[in-house]
Write a protein that binds this DNA or RNA. Sequence first.
DNA 1: CAGTGGCACGGGCTATC
DNA 2: ATAACGATAGCCCGTGCCACTG
Length: 788
Amino acid sequence: MGTACEQGEIFQRILRGESDGDLRSSMKFYDFIELQPVDNNKFMLCASEDKYAAVSCREDLKNFNRRLYELAVKSGKPVVGTSDAHFLDPEDARFRAVLQAGQKFVDANDQPPIYLRTTDEMIMEFDYLGEDRAIQIAVENPRLLASSCENVRPVPDEFCPPSVENAREIFENTIATRAHQLYGEKLPDLVAERLKKEQQAILGNHFESLYVISARLVEKSLGDDYLVGSRGSVGSSFAAYLMGITEVNPLPPHYRCEQCDYVEFPGDSGNIVGIDLEQKDCPDCGSSLEQDGFDIPFEVFCGFDGTKIPDIDLNFSGEYQQEIFHYLKNFFGEGNIFRAGTITTISDRTAAGFANKYIEEYSNTSSWAEKERLKSGIEGVKQNTSQHPGGMIVVPENRSIYQFTPINYPANDRDSSFLTTHFDYHSMEDQLVKLDILGHENPTQLRHLKQLTGIDPVTIPLDDPQTLQIFTDLSSLNLTEEELGMKVGVLGVPEFGTIFVRDLVTEAAPTSFADLVRISGLSHGENVWNNNARDLIKQGRADLTSVITCRDDIMNYLIKNGLPENIAFQIMEDVRKGKGLKPEYIQKMQACRVPAWYIKSCDKIKYLFPKAHAAAYVLMAFRIAYFKVHHPTAFYASYLSLKADHLSAAYICSLSAIEERMEQLQGIIEQKRREGKTEKRDEKEYGIMEVLREGYLRGISVRPPRVSKSGPFRFRVESEQLIRAPYVTIEGLGNTVAEGIEKAFKEKRFTSIEDLQNRTQVNSTVTETADGLGFFEALPPTENRQLF
DNA sequence: CAGTGGCACGGGCTATC
DNA sequence: ATAACGATAGCCCGTGCCACTG
Ligand SMILES: Nc1nc2c(ncn2[C@H]2C[C@H](O)[C@@H](COP(=O)(O)OP(=O)(O)OP(=O)(O)O)O2)c(=O)[nH]1
Ligand SMILES: [Mg+2]
Ligand SMILES: [Zn+2]
């Protein structure tokens, strides 16, 4: 425990003029006394505060240090020279100034010289105490201090998995029972071998508890009638499939009989997934066979040698995420579950803003290079802490969170029901396990669709031809390309509806479920489709089945070409993280006659899905698409009530309002893009409007609920002819001023739209439409909002 | 009725899966 | 390098409004 700088207790006492005796007794608490260079305290000479009034020259500052030294010696405490370093080199003071200017400090340019002194510099700083003492302070005592510290390892380095009672038994029993349920009394060799391999790896790496608790979470959610979406690489695990953690079956495409034990792996069905197999009846009992299997290697999840520590990802309904958090906390206990924290840094835009501001206020340079220098100098500086989207860290019973990280309330909110780790989870990922409990809207939407139609999403036929057709043309939607302005009917289908994916779908022309999985892979990550697969297909060098569409493609292909398994795996991992290919890997690939285009393709990819994730997402997308084709009203209703909770009634009733809004949004989006803004709310709203518009074109009657007011509109005319329409609560619509203003407009209380705009003080842009008014701005969202 | 503290909302930026 | 990965969410700040206070 050292005495710190002039803000520390001891120095403050000196400034207050305390006696030697008092100072010495205060010093007892500390292990060593710090002396800092006098220039560190130079600011006192011209500071206006009272406590510095008596400090008038450098000699005064030296005298402070002389006195500290004497008292320390008398108290038997070692004196250590410290520089109070806030930056490394003197010239780095500029970066600190930029940071402070950005945070509205005044006089940011007045920086004390708090850089790291070299030994020689440090000796010089204390020469007024005499050379021997200076050396003692700068060299000998710091060494003494360092040597008195034992060798400590602040954080354990071994893997500390949580333990769930009987986890091994539960794990083994569950997968065995379920395997026999699905694949019969005697498991086919392929199934048995896969299970054995996974079981060994999972138990060997102490992962069974994570499987068991994940299964429990899914069970809990399903029990509360909230379906769970699969996600992540865990769909590569057959054991996970058997435990209900994922609905992705990683076995090769196969048939299986629900009524008897018949199982068939047709083999060599390379380009398709189980869903695409031709339908057929059980040769043993005649009932219609089930088809499944996406053909995914377990190693994508776990690696070959057990060094990869995977996580388990789950998509819960956003509405239900908190519920699961609490369930997890109750399961492991308050002190064992923490939400992972994240650390916000000063990044591109903020750094640029700070640099600009600094230059504007403190410097007159117009040099682009200097601006970039200042910007890059502050990039990456920690700014704030925040909450991880869904990462929950599990601390085993025999450990304490403090062995790994401090913890804190998110955003200093003491009412928060969760604490977050102060360090991000990467600092403890090799020690503790993390469950990724993400919130997503798909499960919520499917839940609504189930409620609206009575159809259970899991029963939806995944080979429904009309649903598959929307990825080709608009025939299933009874629309024309002219009407809709696009060739395919994927608007509103999750992760398929954006212009980029629409064009991709159009170009790639999928004809099977397997193709959809490929497209899902191709449409996520930079340089997977554009500048890559797309060109290769155009040039005829490859086709949809041979380009790289997901991580697994790479690993499988390289192993097939004769690369060692672990190298193939490592290359896959580097590629999926966008690291490009190391020269040694390129050599190895060339040695195995991997074609140049393939190597280049790997090298360009910036991010790549695992097939398991693509499959999981296509399953969800396909079901939502099924509703879109066969139950359109329910589809648009569920979509809009989830996504468009900001639309006012008048807006929803008018096609012209929608189209005008779309036009307006395009302008805003374009401008933001030009300015390099990162905010995407307008783009999101545009996407919603596209779906809304499509609903109209399909003749769907999308109407707001009949508004039953919870009270009369408060609507009054102020003396200065300013109409105020305070928020009123309308059941089902939440708080809105829209209705009241529209009513006033219809009563001709405004002379024009401009008049309305001027006198209502509504922030929205208002336009007149055929059937009312359009309000183009977000209104307060409400809970439990039902539009239909 | 001026002053003020607090809240809601929109917008900007960042993190993460 | 060519426009394009999609989705979800948290935190902070400025602004405007409102209720409360004295
Ligand atoms: N579109 C998109 N999806 C992502 C991105 N990062 C992650 N995801 C999705 C796909 C992942 O499979 C899923 C889970 O993310 P994880 O970080 O857990 O990685 P993943 O499970 O794929 O691999 P892992 O075995 O956990 O290392 O979330 C991304 O940058 N873009
Ligand atoms: Mg994962
Ligand atoms: Zn049968």
